[in-house]
Design a protein around this nucleic acid. Sequence first.
DNA 1: TATTGTTATACTCTATAACTATA
DNA 2: TATAGTTATAGAGTATAACAATA
Lengths: 152, 152
Amino acid sequence: MDGLAQLSFLVQNSLARHATEHSLSLVQTRLLGILRDREPTMNELARLLELDKSSVTGLIDRAERRGLVERIASLADRRAVLVRLTDEGRSLVAQVSTLFELDVSRMLECLPVSDRDALSRLVSRALVAHAANRGVDLFATIDSARTAGSVR
Amino acid sequence: MDGLAQLSFLVQNSLARHATEHSLSLVQTRLLGILRDREPTMNELARLLELDKSSVTGLIDRAERRGLVERIASLADRRAVLVRLTDEGRSLVAQVSTLFELDVSRMLECLPVSDRDALSRLVSRALVAHAANRGVDLFATIDSARTAGSVR
DNA sequence: TATTGTTATACTCTATAACTATA
DNA sequence: TATAGTTATAGAGTATAACAATA
């Protein structure tokens, strides 16, 4: 109930804090997280981030200016542009991701192992049940949560 | 573990979605949520929202222009300005809050009652343990989570 | 014609620095 | 002198609409 909201703010705060410490916004961090295992087109990025394509243009402009990502012409479709993480971008997202995971781990370590397992089981059950309940609609949300959370 | 991150994004997405449907940003929604049971000064708002005071000036400017809040001269300190929710603002935050609570409830209804109770118990235990573990530092975060979450 | 991406424009949100008025 | 708040300015993030190039 209310605890879930509190918990979600704790998790988000942790992510936001570590992002800010590395001069990243939440969106930039989500972007880099997505790019860790993909080289999507601008269009795909817009869908993954649930943003307008023009917003993604600006987002990539700024990230490219900082040397975190690079644009690559697609060979398959000459209209399309692929986005790739640079070494610097990869290193940066790895740092933020490590700190964030550490935070979540520390939060969970407050619980005895048995509770931790139970919590993990209940959370996945809630996620699965929720997804099943809402069908397609929710799959989009879950996917965006996963990719966003894959920061992680 | 990773599920917690996913869950937090689900909760945040729900809040963001209902806020957007009512032409509110997340920050505006947090603002209105805070004002439901308080009439803070600009300075106190800056602390509660963890923003610079100049950011709060702009935030209140825009909310006031929309008729959601009003500035009131403080009688105690002639430098200070109190911020109060208007009837329209109160009605708006009530709508968003209701829809959000409904979402969270629906998500929890996917679980059998016994699991729901267990989850609730574990989440509060994690929050309490976490707070105790980090001391003052975390109290600030928890408080901001609570006030933000009191949207709720 | 439809799709991919960029540009132009406008608004919100945020911070820093300089300022005014009051304490 | 210190504090409360505003203003000026700059930059990120977002969307809509118009556009170019390609499919």
